[in-house]
Simulated scan of single mutants.
Amino acid sequence: MMKHIFIWALALLSTQASFAQQTVNTASSTVKFEISNWSIKTVEGTFSGMTGIFNLNTNDLANSNFNVCIDAATINTENEQRDEHLKTDDFFDVEKYPNICFKSTSITKSDNGYTTTGTLTMHGVSKKVNIPFTYNNNTFTGTLEIDRTDFGVGSDGGFMVGEEVSLEIICVVK
């Protein structure tokens, strides 16, 4: 009997360990974005420097959560002059707002994977967003669209810079 209890306890511990909080693999994680420029061209870029915690237990979504940030100064559109301008107070103001963060409030199962709802904070503004995502091989892949002006990013962009930004979040956990 004692042997069975020991085996059951060991199995329980190993199951709980597999659902333990994980950290973001900063080197492998990125946020890709696309935005229109001059209404005729699309600018693509990335952010890196993602850090935070990732706690996803597909058997217990109510107790799962994410708290992840990216370094706003890592913006890269493969145009150094544009990237430096995007870092200024005309757009991201990275000296004042160095991080873009997401903190989940809920995670639910969906037809194509999952959806997380939470608070996206950028440029000192916090908004509730929903991010549909999949999770395979320790990789969270989510997509969403935001209006950059809702966050006060590049408010004076006028017709030169589109308002809608498409984001793809790739978060690898370890």
Score class of each variant (00 low, 15 high):
residue 47 F to T: 00
residue 169 I to E: 02
residue 64 S to F: 13
residue 85 H to W: 05
residue 169 I to G: 01
residue 56 L to K: 02
residue 35 I to H: 00
residue 32 K to H: 12
residue 114 Y to M: 06
residue 145 E to P: 09
residue 99 N to A: 10
residue 74 T to M: 05
residue 97 Y to S: 07
residue 50 M to T: 10
residue 102 F to D: 10
residue 75 I to G: 01
residue 94 V to N: 04
residue 123 H to G: 04
residue 39 S to T: 08
residue 102 F to N: 08
residue 60 D to F: 13
residue 28 S to W: 14
residue 46 T to Q: 07
residue 155 S to K: 12
residue 69 C to T: 06
residue 136 N to P: 03
residue 113 G to A: 06
residue 9 A to E: 11
residue 17 A to D: 11
residue 29 S to P: 05
residue 64 S to E: 14
residue 21 Q to D: 14
residue 168 E to G: 01
residue 73 A to N: 06
residue 150 D to E: 10
residue 31 V to P: 00
residue 137 N to R: 01
residue 30 T to Q: 07
residue 23 T to W: 09
residue 58 T to C: 07
residue 123 H to W: 10
residue 72 A to R: 00
residue 157 G to W: 05
residue 97 Y to Q: 06
residue 5 I to F: 15
residue 23 T to Q: 11
residue 77 T to I: 00
residue 147 D to E: 12
residue 3 K to V: 15
residue 71 D to L: 01
residue 94 V to E: 03
residue 73 A to E: 04
residue 9 A to N: 11
residue 79 N to S: 05
residue 57 N to I: 05
residue 73 A to M: 02
residue 30 T to S: 08
residue 17 A to W: 15
residue 87 K to V: 09
residue 146 I to H: 06
residue 55 N to E: 15
residue 136 N to L: 10
residue 60 D to Q: 11
residue 12 L to R: 11
residue 145 E to M: 13
residue 72 A to P: 02
residue 51 T to I: 09
residue 170 I to E: 08
residue 160 M to I: 15
residue 154 G to Y: 03
residue 114 Y to A: 01
residue 131 I to E: 04
residue 7 I to K: 09
residue 92 F to R: 03
residue 110 S to Y: 12
residue 37 N to S: 08
residue 13 L to T: 14
residue 18 S to Y: 12
residue 138 N to P: 07
residue 10 L to W: 13
residue 35 I to V: 02
residue 28 S to H: 15
residue 42 T to K: 01
residue 4 H to G: 14
residue 26 T to Y: 07
residue 83 D to R: 00
residue 26 T to L: 10
residue 1 M to A: 15
residue 69 C to I: 07
residue 34 E to R: 05
residue 8 W to C: 15
residue 13 L to M: 15
residue 133 F to V: 03
residue 95 E to H: 06
residue 159 F to T: 13
residue 165 V to I: 10
residue 151 F to L: 12
residue 122 M to I: 07
residue 173 V to Q: 06
residue 127 K to S: 05
residue 28 S to E: 15
residue 7 I to P: 05
residue 54 F to W: 05
residue 152 G to Y: 11
residue 10 L to Y: 14
residue 116 T to Y: 04
residue 91 F to Q: 01
residue 143 T to W: 03
residue 92 F to M: 10
